[in-house]
Simulated scan of single mutants.
Amino acid sequence: MAERGKKKPVGGPRSAARLGAVQALYQLEMSDEPKVPMVIEEYLRHRLGAEIEGDQYVDADGDLFSDIVAGAWSRVDEFDEAIAPCLAKDWPLDRLEAIIRAILRAGAYELTARPDVPTAVIINEYVDIAHAFVERAEASFVNGVLDKLAKAVR
């Protein structure tokens, strides 16, 4: 039984890996000197599956987490170019909030590099993650962009 006042972990290891990957990609973008191996190691050792500020995080699929972070970050320019045509002409990628860019980049990576994962699963997972950080309209925006991107790359 969970202690009173503490949240129970939600989602499975793959969902937790995706959420952690989005957070790590956000951290990398906000960093003056992004160091992917250090950020991945930090998350694997200290964040994924840990209790932080009274919240218990689900153990994540470390391999999936590492794959998404390293893969999305190493190809960030490529994914930004693929995402740009899916946006309105008057709304460039750099105008989006950093967390939305992180979500879209992680989704773009999985859509292009993980054919083993069904398109609907990828889109649904990242829309769910968007709901954790932004309002409903922005989460719907993520859905629309990832759907357009999926049609272009799959």
Rank of each mutant, 00 (worst) to 15 (best):
65 F>A: 01
42 E>Q: 10
84 A>C: 11
68 I>L: 12
66 S>Q: 06
78 E>D: 13
38 M>R: 04
55 D>N: 07
91 W>E: 11
58 V>M: 13
85 P>E: 15
38 M>W: 09
90 D>R: 08
49 G>C: 01
53 E>M: 07
75 R>Q: 15
61 D>M: 07
90 D>C: 06
76 V>M: 14
61 D>E: 11
73 W>N: 03
63 D>P: 13
51 E>P: 07
47 R>D: 11
84 A>Q: 15
81 E>W: 05
85 P>Q: 12
43 Y>T: 00
83 I>Y: 00
52 I>K: 15
38 M>K: 09
83 I>D: 09
64 L>W: 03
89 K>T: 14
68 I>E: 13
87 L>V: 10
40 I>C: 10
48 L>V: 15
67 D>S: 15
78 E>K: 05
39 V>F: 06
64 L>F: 09
63 D>L: 13
44 L>H: 13
49 G>T: 06
42 E>V: 09
42 E>Y: 07
78 E>L: 14
62 G>Q: 10
68 I>F: 15
88 A>L: 03
78 E>Y: 13
66 S>K: 02
87 L>S: 07
45 R>F: 00
41 E>H: 08
44 L>K: 12
48 L>C: 10
49 G>D: 01
67 D>K: 14
50 A>N: 11
75 R>F: 02
83 I>L: 08
90 D>E: 11
68 I>Q: 13
70 A>V: 05
89 K>V: 15
76 V>W: 13
82 A>M: 12
73 W>P: 05
71 G>W: 06
40 I>Q: 04
87 L>T: 07
85 P>A: 11
46 H>S: 13
47 R>S: 09
84 A>K: 09
54 G>V: 01
44 L>F: 07
65 F>C: 03
81 E>Q: 13
43 Y>N: 03
59 D>L: 06
76 V>I: 15
84 A>D: 12
90 D>W: 09
74 S>I: 05
81 E>A: 03
81 E>G: 05
57 Y>I: 00
84 A>T: 14
65 F>Y: 06
42 E>H: 03
53 E>K: 08
86 C>E: 08
38 M>S: 08
80 D>T: 03
89 K>P: 14
53 E>L: 08
55 D>M: 02
55 D>C: 06
49 G>N: 01
84 A>E: 15
53 E>G: 01
46 H>N: 14
45 R>I: 03
83 I>P: 09
47 R>N: 13
43 Y>K: 03
43 Y>D: 07
61 D>C: 05
42 E>D: 12
47 R>V: 10
63 D>N: 14
56 Q>W: 01
76 V>C: 14
43 Y>R: 02
68 I>T: 09
52 I>W: 05
57 Y>K: 06
88 A>M: 01
52 I>R: 13
62 G>W: 00
50 A>Q: 11
67 D>V: 14
39 V>D: 04
39 V>A: 08
86 C>G: 05
81 E>M: 09
62 G>I: 02
91 W>H: 10
70 A>S: 15
40 I>W: 00
56 Q>G: 01
67 D>E: 15
54 G>A: 08
71 G>A: 08
59 D>P: 02
48 L>S: 02
46 H>G: 08
